[in-house]
Simulated assay, not measured.
Amino acid sequence: MKRALWLPLFDCLADPPAVARLAADAEEAGWDGLFVWDHVRWREPVTHVADPWITLAAVATATERLRFGPMVSALTRRRPAKLARETASLDLLGGGRLVLGVGLGSDRFAGEFSRFGEECDDRVRGRMLDESLEVLRAAWSGEEVRFRGEHYTVDGVTFLPRPVQRPGVPVWAAGFPGNVRPMRRAARLDGFFPVNLSSAEEFADAVGQVEALRSDDGPFDYVCEVEPGADVAPYAAAGATWCLTAFEPASLSMDHVRGVLSDGPAVR
């Protein structure tokens, strides 16, 4: 099982050069990945928020081995054609190390949809997300893209250069276990990140549900989330291929992040 830091880009971490330095130190300490939250605002008392894509570009140039990516990005807030260019460029910049985490997002944390006039209906956003993923997959192929959906259109455009990774950037889908739609979506992609779980037993159940929905036996990642210092061995036994060490915004400090980073990713 691989280990990664999962950072909210708020307040003390709303500083791309500082996060890039953390990424370089994490690579030196033996961590396998560094993933970042993707938000345009957060609830009080958070006041400072960094852009994830600019921050990830800094991470890409500061590291050589570390996997990185947004975890997770609500694609309905982004135009798929622009995202296709951004993801290909970022994968090239990092030499093929980008992972794209995707999900519906939620308005309840900070009004990120309602305050900006974005779509708030989960069902509509689900259809938008699926269309975006179709466009991205087609764009990463390097072939001409012709797509006409309910929400997006691409009329005969070729997206070059392609990402380093083939057939494209790995995509992990987040979702609530028990909700079959995100699990079906994840089963068609490259990984599943079940959120809001309270135990390794619940994680194992989510793994089993998605495995039952998958139609091939190719590489697939199951991603779990733990608090700093938690015992991750039960999650590894439950099928996790990646484990993200998470940090709460309310107690976020640079000293705390550096302390966890320095402890290293060894399974306890």
Results as ranks from 00 to 15, higher is better:
Asp130Lys: 01
Glu134His: 13
Pro161Gly: 04
Glu150Ile: 12
Arg166Ser: 15
Pro167Met: 12
Val135Arg: 07
Leu136Trp: 08
Tyr152Ser: 07
Val145Gly: 03
Glu119Gly: 03
Gly126Leu: 00
Val157Arg: 00
His151Met: 11
Ser114Pro: 11
Phe116Gly: 03
Arg137Tyr: 06
Glu144Gly: 08
Gly126Tyr: 00
Trp140Lys: 11
Glu118Val: 02
Gly117Ser: 01
Gly142Gln: 06
Ser132Gly: 12
Tyr152Cys: 07
Phe147His: 08
Pro170Asp: 09
Gly168Tyr: 01
Arg123Ile: 04
Leu129Trp: 13
Val124Lys: 10
Arg137Leu: 13
Leu136Lys: 13
Pro170Leu: 08
Phe113Val: 02
Val157Ser: 02
Glu119Pro: 03
His151Asp: 11
Pro163Ile: 06
Phe147Trp: 11
Arg125Leu: 05
Ala110Lys: 00
Glu144Tyr: 03
Ala138Gly: 06
Ala138His: 05
Pro163His: 06
Phe116Met: 08
Cys120Ala: 13
Tyr152His: 05
Arg137Asp: 15
Val171Phe: 13
Glu150Lys: 11
Glu144Thr: 07
Arg148Val: 15
Ser141Tyr: 00
Glu131His: 06
Val135Asp: 02
Glu143Thr: 12
Leu133Ile: 12
Pro161Arg: 03
Phe147Tyr: 14
Ser141Trp: 03
Val145Ala: 07
Ser141His: 04
Leu160Ser: 10
Pro161Tyr: 01
Val169Gln: 02
Phe109Glu: 13
Ala173Cys: 09
Arg146Gly: 08
Arg137Cys: 12
Glu134Val: 05
Gly149Glu: 08
Glu112Trp: 02
Gly117Asp: 03
Val154Met: 00
Arg125Met: 05
Cys120Arg: 12
Pro163Thr: 09
Pro170Trp: 14
Gly142Asn: 06
Glu144Val: 06
His151Arg: 10
Gly117Asn: 02
Gly156Asp: 01
Arg146Trp: 11
Leu136Ala: 12
Cys120His: 06
Phe113Ile: 00
Pro161Leu: 02
Leu136Asn: 10
Asp122Glu: 11
Glu119Cys: 05
Arg137Ser: 15
Gly168Gln: 05
Gly117Met: 02
Phe109Cys: 10
Phe147Thr: 05
Arg108Asn: 15
Leu129Asp: 12
Cys120Ser: 09
Ser141Arg: 02
Ser114Leu: 04
Ser114Asn: 01
Trp140Ala: 13
Ser141Lys: 03
Gln165Glu: 14
Arg123Val: 15
Phe147Gly: 05
Asp121Phe: 01
Pro170Tyr: 07
Val154Glu: 00
Leu133Cys: 11
Trp172Pro: 01
Phe159Met: 01
Gly142Ile: 04
Val169Phe: 01
Leu160Ile: 10
Gly117Val: 03
Arg166Gly: 14
Pro170Thr: 13
Glu131Asn: 12
Gln165Trp: 11
Pro170Gly: 10
Glu118Lys: 06
Leu129Arg: 10
Thr153Gly: 05
Asp130Cys: 07
Leu129Ser: 09
Phe113Asn: 02
Thr153Lys: 07
Val124Ala: 05
Asp122Ile: 10
Glu112Pro: 14
Glu131Trp: 09
Phe113Asp: 06
Gly111Tyr: 00
Gly156Arg: 00
Thr158Gln: 03
Phe159Glu: 09
Phe109Ala: 15
Val135Trp: 04
Leu129Asn: 13
Gly111Glu: 01
Leu136His: 10
